[in-house]
Amino acid sequence: MTAAPMTATPMNSPILWIHGAALGPANPALVAWPGRPAVFVFDDALIAGSALSLKRLGFLYECLLELPVTIRRGDVASEVLAFAARHQADGVVTTAAVDPRFRQLGQAIAARVPLTVLPVEPFVAPEAGGPQPGDLGRFSRYWRRAEPLVWQRFKG
């Protein structure tokens, strides 16, 4: 997973930024900081720019209703920063995502408060012999590298 800028600043009372690529209870930020205030922001610019249908927003909303998270809408970075101020937080913790928009938002947040980006468990462990960036030209090449590592976990 590609990470946004990561800081090593120790935090005592961060808020958690929950985004649309990590809407489960196993979200590493929720697991690492149980009980800390968490926020999800519906991204108005993205929703308008992509003309997202109500189905997609409803699916996200239903996921959020099962998580201990405050739900907001608007400009994501501004809302996350305001939520951090509201809770006198000393930083923001979130979970890695591939989406380049996540990287941009992470940079905007990290410019104002310390941001920690936690990794998610990878599908293929980053071991020797695993897929490299140069193996992505076609799936077959990636899979030749990845498949043996994935199946190492099978104990059948």
Binding site: L23, I47, K55, L57, L65, E66, R73
Partner: peptide, 16 residues
């Protein structure tokens, strides 16, 4: 909340 978002909810329910 999102008057420009078209349509209705999906029969597929979100959540864990």
């Amino acid at each position: 909340l999102f008057p420009s978002a078209s349509g209705a909810l999906s029969p597929i329910v979100g959540g864990w």
